[in-house]
């Protein structure tokens, strides 16, 4: 059971870590000052969540790998984040759509995980949920502004939805790891979470005069360590310092 709990905690931690790293790339590069600050604030919340989760994962594994070692010294196939969060920032519309799909998943997910029988996961979920509500409000409002904005913003944000929607299934990927923990009431089942996710996404898209793509393309594999080409490039930058100067601190 400990192996499964470790694996499960890593999946949640890596979603926060990798998206936090992606958003941090925008520091100093946001389209306007307010959004530069907003996106990096969200990045900071996500990296904070990742720290709490990786510290917990390290304590479960109990192999003298601390949170920093887990964050910086794994190889790509050992990262268990969903494919959605590793996708590049693209234009502002694409950054917002990625965030919107992720936040729409994270809010009901943390709400459900807050009742976990595992006290540490429940505590992290309750803490993170408060921050996630702000993230979701921010990304949802931007999807509506861009979708129901100019013809240029509408067309570009629609294109981002067409491209990124195929990765949403990976957020709900379920295997023996989840199922074993669901039976212990440690992990919540994805059934209700997916219902809430769909409801929120569809309501916002309607308001934004946007639609889901017609195809049923689904890409999964992140939870098993099978990633898109983008993760390796992200890790190269994220891990550079620890690889070049092992154990350096600041």
């Amino acid at each position: 059971m400990n192996n499964k709990l470790f694996e499960y905690t890593l999946r949640i931690a890596d979603d926060s870590l990798i998206l936090g790293q992606r958003l941090s790339e925008l520091c100093g590069h946001g389209p306007i000052l307010e959004e530069d600050i907003a996106l990096t604030n969200i990045s900071l919340d996500l990296i904070g969540q990742a720290t709490n989760l990786l510290e917990y994962a390290a304590s479960i594994e109990n192999k003298q790998r601390d949170a920093d070692k887990l964050a910086f010294l794994r190889v790509d196939k050992e990262y268990k984040n969903s494919l959605l969060v590793e996708q590049p920032n693209g234009d502002f519309g694409s950054t917002i759509v990625r965030q919107f799909l992720f936040d729409s998943f994270r809010r009901p997910f943390f709400e459900a995980l807050a009742s976990s029988t595992d006290e540490s996961l429940a505590a992290i979920a309750k803490k993170s949920l408060k921050e996630t509500k702000y993230h979701l409000k921010h990304s949802s409002e931007w999807v509506i502004r861009l979708g129901d904005g100019t013809s240029e913003s509408h067309q570009r944000v629609q294109k981002s939805i067409d491209v990124l929607w195929r990765y949403h299934s990976d957020l709900f990927y379920e295997d023996e790891v989840d199922l074993a923990l669901v039976s212990e009431n440690i992990a919540p089942s994805f059934k209700e979470i997916k219902k809430e996710f769909n409801q929120h996404v569809l309501a916002v898209l309607e308001e934004a005069t946007l639609k889901l793509p017609d195809n049923n393309w689904e890409f999964t594999g992140g939870r098993k360590g099978m990633h898109s080409e983008h993760l390796g490039h992200l890790l190269a930058e994220m891990q550079y310092m620890q690889r070049a100067y092992p154990n350096m601190e600041w």
């Binding site: 307010e34 907003a38 702000y134």
Partner: peptide, 8 residues
């Protein structure tokens, strides 16, 4: 002006 400011 923005939901996010100088600190979290």
């Amino acid at each position: 002006v923005s939901l996010f400011g100088s600190t979290s």
